[in-house]
């Protein structure tokens, strides 16, 4: 007695309808509103990237979940039914296995190619090490981010190497962050900007960001760096270009006595070998 109910066709139908509805909802309603937002070119690109990932993973997740749920509802042994009955002794189906392999491989290869293109376009705001592969076109304003236990300071080599303890960057500009550390590994994370780069002692880690409109953003340390890791955050500002010019001039004046005592601007600094904080 072979059961001829078209289970598979029913499941496919349920999946088609629900995945069209849900994927549309996810792609057009949920994903575009998610952080990091649209403050920079890189964060907008990350939103687009996440939207594509959501769009692809929603139907896949639904296929697995619906199949699981469908099996549990339809093929469940009802209480009181004949417990000596067993399922059909099917041990595989090569065409299904082949199709599964083809579909998942295609999806994965598409994701890898898409991700690589997005990444190689402008580095996606991630730290690219001392020799970046993807350099966005245009004149870059360099900002060095110096992490140490447990604060960030910022040096502007284009403005006499002045070192400030708050971050301001001009709007509608290309910013080249040089992230480094004086002691242990930290990570410079400004999530509204879509930037994250680890700060390694003695190394220069470069990340690019194209700012858009002015805004205030948070800076967090994203790599465990010791006891006060949880307190290692501050805030920064994207400001109009004119405002940035006057701010940096003010900083140069204020910190002129300090700047004279700073070490010469360098891509990286080595920690004192015998320093032991903790």
């Amino acid at each position: 007695m072979q059961d001829t109910t078209p289970y598979f066709r029913r499941l496919v139908l349920i999946w088609l309808v629900s995945s069209v509805v849900l994927t549309a909802l996810v792609v057009f309603v949920l994903a575009p509103g998610l952080p990091p937002g649209n403050a920079t070119v890189q964060s907008s690109a990350a939103v687009v990237d996440n939207t594509v990932l959501f769009g692809i993973s929603t139907p896949i997740a639904l296929a697995v979940l619906l199949c699981l749920g469908y099996c549990l509802v339809v093929f469940r042994e009802r209480p009181g039914s004949d417990t000596t009955l067993e399922g059909p002794a099917v041990r595989g189906n090569s065409s299904i296995q082949l199709w599964w392999l083809v579909i998942t491989t295609t999806t994965v290869l598409f994701l890898a190619v898409f991700g690589s293109i997005e990444l190689l376009k402008d580095g996606a705001g991630g730290g690219q090490g001392p020799n970046p592969l993807s350099v966005p076109a245009g004149h870059a304003i360099q900002v060095q981010v110096i992490a140490q236990q447990w604060e960030f300071t910022y040096r502007y080599p284009g403005y006499g190497g002045v070192e400030t303890n708050s971050l301001e960057i001009p709007a509608n500009s290309l910013i080249e962050f040089h992230v480094t550390s004086l002691d242990v590994i930290h990570s410079f994370w400004a999530y509204q900007l879509g930037v994250k780069a680890d700060a390694n002692p003695g190394e220069d880690n470069i990340a690019y960001v194209n700012t858009k409109a002015p805004l205030n953003f948070e800076v967090h340390c994203a790599e465990l760096c010791g006891v006060y890791h949880g307190y290692m955050y501050n805030s920064g500002k994207v400001v109009p270009k004119a405002e940035f010019a006057s701010w940096i001039a003010q900083q140069q004046k204020t910190f002129a006595p300090v700047s004279g005592n700073l070490p010469k601007y360098s891509r990286s600094y080595f920690p004192a070998p015998d320093r032991r904080g903790g």
């Binding site: 990091p36 890189q42 990350a46 990237d49 990932l53 991700g115 990570s187 994370w189 994250k196 994203a222």
Partner: peptide, 15 residues
């Protein structure tokens, strides 16, 4: 899969 995608990982790494 989100974390393996570098542009997406930049926002979620270490979080």
């Amino acid at each position: 899969v989100f974390l393996s995608d570098v542009p997406s990982d930049v926002d979620t790494h270490g979080s």
